Amino acid sequence: MRDEILRRLVHASGTAVPLAYLFVPGIEWIHVQGLLIGGLLVALVLEVVRLVVGLDWWVYEKLTREYEQDNLAGYFLAVFSMAAVALAFEPTIAVPAILMLTVADPVSGLLGSGELRAAKEVTVLLVTFAVATLLAVPFVTPLAAVLGGAAATVADGIKPVIRGYVIDDNLSIPVASAVAMALAVEFLPASPL
């Protein structure tokens, strides 16, 4: 359980990126994009060292799950997806999508077992949906927030396995929620909730 809490704290530390953009004067979106690209390059080097060279630091034993031992680790997928949404979407979409990963997903993980399963319990998914939706409300229309929260919840609750590779929610939560919110803002802007 201690390793699970540590994993969730590392996960939640990514919240500093969108919060800096929102609350630190002088930080522009281009700075956030640059920071995430830099973080992605560092993470890529670390993953090459871990997976190709074989250097396995103690931190990987504590912070990676069993299914990540021979695949890209969740932290890399998180940085990758955060950078992708930061580059592909405006801040009003990207910020809540990133927050859904860095806040709603750790909440879900602490409430759930933290282990890989076919699906999570309904109550955990409802809490995930509520947290994800509330995170999006300040940024997008209510309907877009609900659709983004629903997309994040589905991505969090289902981890498909394709050819032995787990499609980790660190990759799918920001992307799915950003796409859902962007489509809702674009095509359903005046729809009441």
Rank of each mutant, 00 (worst) to 15 (best):
M1L: 04
M1V: 02
M1K: 10
M1T: 03
E4G: 08
L9K: 07
V10P: 06
A12E: 06
S13K: 13
T15Y: 06
P18Y: 04
A20N: 07
V24C: 12
G26K: 00
W29K: 09
I30L: 15
H31E: 10
V32S: 11
L41P: 13
L41G: 15
V42T: 15
L46S: 04
E47Q: 14
E47H: 11
V48H: 09
V48P: 07
V49N: 00
R50L: 07
R50G: 02
V52F: 05
L55M: 11
L55T: 14
E61T: 08
E61P: 01
L63H: 03
L63E: 08
Y67I: 00
E68S: 02
E68N: 10
E68A: 02
E68H: 01
Q69T: 13
G74H: 02
Y75I: 15
V79N: 10
M82H: 11
A83P: 01
V85M: 01
A88E: 03
P91G: 00
T92Y: 13
T92A: 15
I93T: 10
V95E: 08
P96T: 00
A97N: 11
L99F: 13
L99W: 14
L99N: 08
L101D: 14
T102F: 12
A104L: 01
V107R: 07
G114S: 03
A118F: 15
A119M: 14
V124Q: 01
V131L: 05
V131D: 05
T133G: 03
L134W: 02
V137P: 09
V140T: 09
T141D: 11
T141K: 13
P142Q: 09
L143Y: 02
A144W: 01
A145D: 09
A150S: 11
T153C: 08
T153D: 08
G157H: 00
G157E: 02
I158W: 13
K159M: 12
V161T: 15
V161Q: 06
V161M: 15
D168G: 09
N170V: 08
A176K: 08
A178V: 01
V179I: 09
V185A: 12
E186Q: 13
E186K: 14
F187V: 01
L188V: 06
A190E: 14
S191D: 03
P192W: 10
